[in-house]
């Protein structure tokens, strides 16, 4: 019983530690510019959240909303498509025997070790050669790649999709592609959610790629947009309030995604771990 109390105390401390910045952000977002420096940072002054949000979404013809939509398009689109690609690739590596399979898998795995940051500049030079820098695709296409997802999909496909089932599907005359989408992908679902979430977070947080690729403000994801504003605070101090409110709004999609999908995520993680 004693140890339980100890554990709860540690967990409680961790929770406070992790939630405090979010609390600060929320409280800060409800203040106007004067109160932001003048009042206690961890407690409310007058409640201006609605005014602040209205100011944010109307500032510069609502460019913030555009950034949010961009982020959702980059992140949601890339995570969805990237998950499908990773699942297909991992599945093929797990279920089909062909020459060079292990070599291919090892090459993909080594991709896990290369940080996205290191690839940003070479990617920029490649996209510039193709005349596609500063376009939607310059951020979207590189974001589709997810070697860790391939790894996870392979492990999970090997564990959860029985050979006998595939044999049965083939005997019943189902093509390989059809089998994958109607049978195998369903069995792999918990792993797919995990891959999706990982991918979602990775793309959302990949700040350097859009920073290097994009110079058209209308293509910015919200992270880059807010960062841009934040660097202009010295010149236009009113932007500080907008950055705070914007940061609060920009974390909501991530929070929502996690709350909705965390059940699957835990399952998927556990399954990946035992293998």
């Amino acid at each position: 019983m004693k140890s339980r109390v100890g554990v709860m105390a540690v967990m409680g401390l961790c929770t406070i530690y992790f939630l405090a910045p979010i609390w600060w952000l929320f409280v800060g977002a409800t203040k106007n510019n004067d109160q932001f420096t003048g009042t206690a940072p961890m407690w409310f002054a007058d409640f201006h959240l609605v005014d602040n949000i209205r100011e944010l979404v109307t500032y510069r013809d609502g460019v913030f909303l555009r950034w949010m939509l961009n982020s959702i398009a980059y992140t949601g689109g890339a995570a969805l498509l990237g998950t499908v690609l990773a699942a297909m690739c991992g599945y093929a590596l797990a279920k089909y025997r062909f020459r060079g399979r292990e070599l291919l898998f090892n090459i993909v795995l080594s991709g896990v070790l290369v940080p996205a940051t290191a690839l940003a500049l070479p990617l920029f030079l490649i996209f510039s050669k193709a005349g596609a820098a500063n376009t939607f695709w310059a951020v979207f296409l590189p974001s589709l790649v997810n070697p860790f997802g391939v790894y996870l999909a392979r492990i999970y496909a090997a564990a959860s999709v029985p050979e006998e089932l595939l044999e049965a599907a083939r005997i019943d005359g189902s093509g390989e592609v059809r089998t994958f989408f109607t049978v195998s992908s369903r069995l792999m679902f918990p792993a797919l959610v995990t891959i999706f979430l990982f991918h979602f977070v990775a793309v959302w947080n990949n700040f350097l790629l859009p920073l290097i690729m994009l110079s058209d403000e209308r293509l910015f994801p919200v992270t880059l947009g807010l960062y841009t504003w934040n660097t202009q605070v010295n010149q236009v101090p009113e932007l500080r309030g907008l950055v705070i409110v914007g940061a609060l709004l920009s974390i909501t999609p991530l929070v929502v995604a996690f709350l909705l999908l965390q059940r699957f995520w835990r399952n998927g993680l556990g399954a990946g771990a035992v293998k």
């Binding site: 500063n134 920073l211 290097i212 994009l214 110079s215 058209d216 403000e217 880059l224 960062y227 841009t228 934040n230 660097t231 202009q232």
Partner: peptide, 10 residues
Amino acid sequence: VQTGPNGNGG
């Protein structure tokens, strides 16, 4: 016009 963060910011 194109934009971005301030000079040293990127």
